[in-house]
Simulated scan of single mutants.
Amino acid sequence: MSPVPKRAGVLFDSGRMYYGRLPRAIIGGSALLLAGILLAIFITDALQSEPVAWTSIACALILITFLAFGFSRIQVLENEVRLRWFPFYRRRIPIAAIRRAAPATVHGLRYGFGLRFGAFGLGIIQDTGPAVQLDAGRGYLLSLGSADRQARFLAALAAAGVNVQRF
């Protein structure tokens, strides 16, 4: 992966982070299952007898295919942190609102993947592995995919004046 070019005022830019191997396998398996069901509907001529069912399955297949191309991007600027989970979520968090940041780890599917809500707050989970927990009134769990990216993100937060807990 090539480093993301530096822009003025950007202390950290994760670049586009896509789903890891396990989430891609789950999404792919779901898409294949729905495509198989649609094929069975076409083969058995159930189109006329159950139009709502095949339309619902086709819509679910389109949604899952759309979500398969989802990515997250995390940026630290001098005065804010920008979170993005394509296609549905964008958030700007002022640096002054972040009380602390701490390293974390996402294990398996404990948190799920994608945009998640839980006891940890809001999670942007693309893959298992290194992550960062932000405390900004409500919590954020941000998966970063690599230890290098996690270290650079924490260093950028520290440079911006956030209280960063070490490993």
Rank of each mutant, 00 (worst) to 15 (best):
V52L: 15
P5A: 03
D148A: 13
L47E: 14
I98Y: 03
M17G: 12
S146C: 11
G114N: 00
R152W: 06
F69R: 10
V164N: 00
R110C: 08
P51H: 05
I93V: 11
R166C: 07
I26G: 04
E50V: 11
F42P: 05
Q48I: 10
V162N: 01
G36C: 12
C59L: 15
A158Y: 01
L83K: 01
T44V: 09
V132Q: 01
Y19E: 02
A156Q: 03
P23E: 08
Q48K: 12
A68M: 10
Q150V: 07
V132S: 03
I43Q: 12
P5G: 03
M1L: 15
R7V: 02
L63S: 09
A25H: 05
L11C: 10
G9R: 06
A119L: 12
R152L: 13
L33Q: 13
I125W: 00
W85M: 14
R166L: 12
R24E: 08
L32I: 00
F167W: 14
R116L: 11
I125C: 07
A156I: 00
L63E: 12
G129Q: 00
L63W: 14
F167V: 14
F88N: 09
A101R: 03
L34G: 05
L134I: 01
P3S: 13
L154G: 04
R166H: 12
F12E: 04
R99C: 07
L157C: 10
A96N: 10
L34S: 09
I57W: 00
G161K: 04
P94R: 02
L33S: 15
D148E: 14
A156Y: 00
L22Q: 11
Q150R: 07
R73S: 09
L115P: 01
R73W: 04
P94Q: 06
G29R: 01
Y89C: 07
A155M: 02
G15L: 06
V52I: 13
F42V: 11
Q126M: 15
V76A: 13
Q150K: 04
R92P: 05
I27M: 13
R21Y: 12
L77G: 13
R110D: 13
G108M: 06
Q48E: 15
L142T: 02
G145E: 00
S143C: 07
R84N: 11
F71Y: 14
R16N: 09
A158G: 11
L77N: 10
I27W: 09
A155E: 10
K6S: 14
N79P: 05
G121Q: 07
L154P: 00
V81S: 06
L109R: 02
A136Y: 02
L134D: 08
A131W: 00
R92C: 09
P94T: 01
L83S: 04
R73Y: 00
P103Q: 02
R16T: 02
M1S: 14
S72R: 01
A31K: 05
G29P: 02
I124F: 07
S56E: 05
A8C: 10
